[in-house]
């Protein structure tokens, strides 16, 4: 039995938020269940719920404590969890993202997994990835999962700042920055795709659960 197939844990965060946790480590099943539950909860119009935020393996429900309390909301959540999820979930949106694979860590990464740079890029782009989570920084997306032979750890040194549109790689995942941030991930390329525009509502294009296919640009 994997962590993702166990009954989720309902945890209070302070007095105004409930976390539905599907696992305590990142795995595919827990991530899928979190994303599916977030989509279902968004359609359910739960009383007093102000905001629904999917994470890697959990979903945050921020609630108005003068309208509903934790125990009442927990009951509503348990009812939702017992519903048949697959009948409610819309088909994921698909995105095609062009990437210039010119990152400073690409050569070392490819060599580390026994591939040429071209082979690494082909393997990286072979399968569409799923948006595992958003929310770490404006427009930032975690995408996964790559097959086991491509899994490498993060760098030991943190780069103080990488620009928006940097394509990152570590821990079996690819990530795309949409603002300048510091990162300990490997830098493998860059994209013109911009997943954050503060002048638009909503300000981001990708949602957890969306499908992303990468194309190598020269």
């Amino acid at each position: 039995m994997t962590a993702g197939s166990q009954y989720p844990t309902l945890i209070p965060l302070g007095g105004q938020a409930l976390l539905v946790r599907f696992g305590t480590s990142l795995d595919d099943a827990a991530n899928r269940r979190a994303i599916d539950f977030a989509r279902l909860a968004a359609l359910a119009d739960l009383p007093g719920v102000l905001e629904i935020v999917p994470n890697l393996v959990s979903v945050l429900l921020r609630f108005e404590a003068t309208v509903i309390d934790f125990d009442w909301l927990a009951g509503e959540v348990r009812l939702l969890l017992s519903a048949r999820l697959e009948t409610h979930i819309p088909t994921p949106v698909e995105h095609a993202i062009g990437v210039v694979f010119d990152g400073p860590d690409l050569a070392e990464l490819a060599a580390g997994v026994g591939l040429t740079e071209a082979q690494f890029i082909d393997s990286h782009n072979a399968q569409p990835l799923r948006v595992l989570a958003t929310g770490f920084a404006p427009g930032f997306v975690y995408l996964g999962f790559h097959p086991a032979e491509l899994v490498v750890p993060r760098r030991t040194a943190v780069r103080p700042m990488v620009p928006a549109g940097t394509v990152l790689f570590a821990a079996g995942q690819t990530a795309i920055t949409a603002t300048a941030i510091p990162t300990g991930w490997n830098v493998i390329g860059h994209t013109d795709f911009a997943n954050f525009d503060a002048s638009k509502t909503p300000p981001t294009l990708m949602r957890a659960g969306d499908s992303v296919r990468f194309e190598a640009l020269s």
Binding site: L19, R21, N55, L56
Partner: peptide, 9 residues
């Protein structure tokens, strides 16, 4: 594994 933060954590 990274998870939601709320003010006051």
């Amino acid at each position: 594994v990274s998870d939601s933060i709320v003010p006051g954590d």
